[in-house]
């Protein structure tokens, strides 16, 4: 009966696997296939025959200095967003466990509001808050004595534009981290924390030595989620920097792919960028999981 018991789980899994295969693998396969072809609007509408290009699209991509620059920018920007989101989310999750019911409700409601706001709406509102002519932020900073912010355009300088987008990204993605980590903290048995406190451990020590290790599986999930989300950021950049900022200074990979490929119908080039993104995200995920395993953690 060994064979029977070995195959039973697969039979149960089959419907889900077929669905996943159809909805996930087939598009990825098409993406990969198109990235090796010459496939523009002319090929789609049948005006010209499709031709195989080998690695031609990838070669064109990596010869493009702007692509390399955008790739590096995206990696750094996503890293900054992930760190800021995790720090904010975790800090507020800890805060949630410390405050009374009413402030907790207020914080939860505010966070869920931010979470539920569509990215386009959120970006537009943030843009208005920081508007050089009408925005309340510049007015407030000026009134606080920082006269340099009178009519200051946040989107003009490359780094202040990225900082502005980062704030918006953190604002709309920290609630997921906060809620998940909060749930995790609530699941940590109170006795363990009490024992640590009785042993005279400081708050920081309790977090580092007790809570964080117990939260590890949850932190892994939120970190990976954040990496994937922030690497693929599109709406915020597109809306807040008007499609990539002054002279393209705020382009990230997704916006670049859209501009370079889809807006001008070079689908094969866009697919190649998509494949590069997929490979990078896959590599990051696998490396991260491997690192955890080498530290003897099962997740």
């Amino acid at each position: 009966m060994r064979t029977h018991s070995r195959w039973t789980p697969w039979i149960y899994l089959a419907p889900a696997l077929v669905l996943l295969g159809g909805l996930l693998l087939y598009p990825v396969y098409q993406l990969g296939l198109i990235s090796f072809l010459e496939y523009t609007q002319a090929q789609v509408s049948g005006g010209r025959p499709t031709s195989f290009q080998g690695f031609g699209n990838y070669a064109a991509l990596f010869r493009d200095g702007q692509f390399r620059e955008v790739l590096l920018t995206t990696v750094l920007f996503a890293a900054a967003c992930v760190l800021a989101t995790l720090a904010t989310g975790c800090a507020l999750a800890v805060l949630l466990t410390r405050v009374r019911a009413l402030p907790r409700l207020a914080l939860m409601t505010a966070a869920l509001g931010a979470w539920a706001t569509p990215a386009v709406t959120g970006s537009t509102v943030w843009l208005f808050l920081f508007d050089p002519d009408f925005g309340p932020v510049d007015k407030l900073l000026t009134r606080l004595g920082m006269s340099g912010f009178d009519g200051y355009s946040w989107t003009y300088d490359r780094y202040s534009a990225f900082a502005l987008v980062l704030l918006e990204v953190v604002w709309c993605s920290f609630p997921f981290v906060m809620v998940t980590v909060y749930a995790g903290i609530r699941a940590v048995p109170a006795e363990v924390l009490e024992a640590a406190a009785l042993d005279g451990a400081s708050q920081w020590r309790i977090w580092r030595a007790v809570t964080a290790p117990m939260l590890r599986p949850i932190l892994v999930v939120v970190t990976l989620q954040s990496v994937i989300w922030d690497f693929k950021v599109f709406t915020q950049i597109y809306v807040m920097t008007n499609g990539g900022g002054i002279a393209g200074q705020n382009l990230t990979l997704n916006v670049y792919a859209y501009q370079k490929a889809f807006a001008s119908s070079q689908y094969s080039l866009g697919s190649a960028i998509g494949v590069v993104m997929l490979l990078i995200l896959l590599a990051v995920t696998l490396a991260y999981l491997r690192l955890l395993r080498s530290q003897g953690e099962e997740i």
Partner: peptide
């Protein structure tokens, strides 16, 4: 799926 090329209109 090999052989399944992306769609092209017959025009």
């Amino acid at each position: 799926l090999t052989g399944c090329a992306p769609s092209t209109s017959t025009g």
